[in-house]
């Protein structure tokens, strides 16, 4: 299954298949000594500076979150992320809703239950809230509310980073 390196959990491995970005991203990628076809493993997370430490063969390196979101990897792992981390165009399936109280009730009422399929349509002009399509209708929710919804990938929108701005 294809996914973005950014979404790969700690201690999981994947093979780089492409860099989904412009020349800047590509030259950044190459300057780190990475190549298409490399096997990499995520060795940890630095949530504060957003960098992701990687191990390629026996070499440790660290890449920024922005670049990590542009690197497409092939992995056997089933990747589960919270909905706020997904990108425009991603097609997802709900695994679990972990929110509480009224927010949970609202999400359930709207059909965000286990196995519901959805697609990220766009984010608002200021980046938050986001709009998703599920069950044939469009729903908006704040990123904060999306944090409690855990999803897995049905299909990854690889074009999102390059062409996503107009959406």
């Amino acid at each position: 299954m294809l996914n973005r390196l950014e979404n790969l959990p700690t201690h999981k491995r994947g093979r780089i298949v492409k860099v989904d970005g412009g020349n800047g991203a590509l030259s950044n990628f190459e300057s780190l000594g990475l190549e298409i076809g490399d096997e990499v493993e995520v060795t940890g997370k630095f949530p504060h500076n957003g960098a992701i430490p990687l191990r390629k063969e026996n070499e440790d390196l660290s890449i920024g979150k922005g670049l990590a979101s542009k690197i497409i990897i092939d992995t056997d792992e089933e990747i589960i992320i919270s909905l706020d981390k997904a990108k425009v165009g991603d097609q997802l399936k709900v695994v679990k809703v972990k929110s509480d109280g009224e927010i949970r009730r609202r999400l359930l009422d709207m059909g965000l239950v286990k196995d519901a399929e959805l697609e990220i349509v766009r984010s608002a002009p200021l980046g938050d809230p986001i709009e998703v399509m599920l069950n044939g209708f469009n729903l908006s929710l704040r990123l904060k509310e999306a944090e409690g919804i855990f999803v897995k990938f049905v299909d990854l929108n690889q074009e999102a980073n390059r062409n996503g701005w107009y959406k």
Partner: peptide, 9 residues
């Protein structure tokens, strides 16, 4: 109020 809101057609 949660912003879990329909964007109707």
């Amino acid at each position: 109020e949660p912003f879990v809101m329909e964007l109707p057609p």
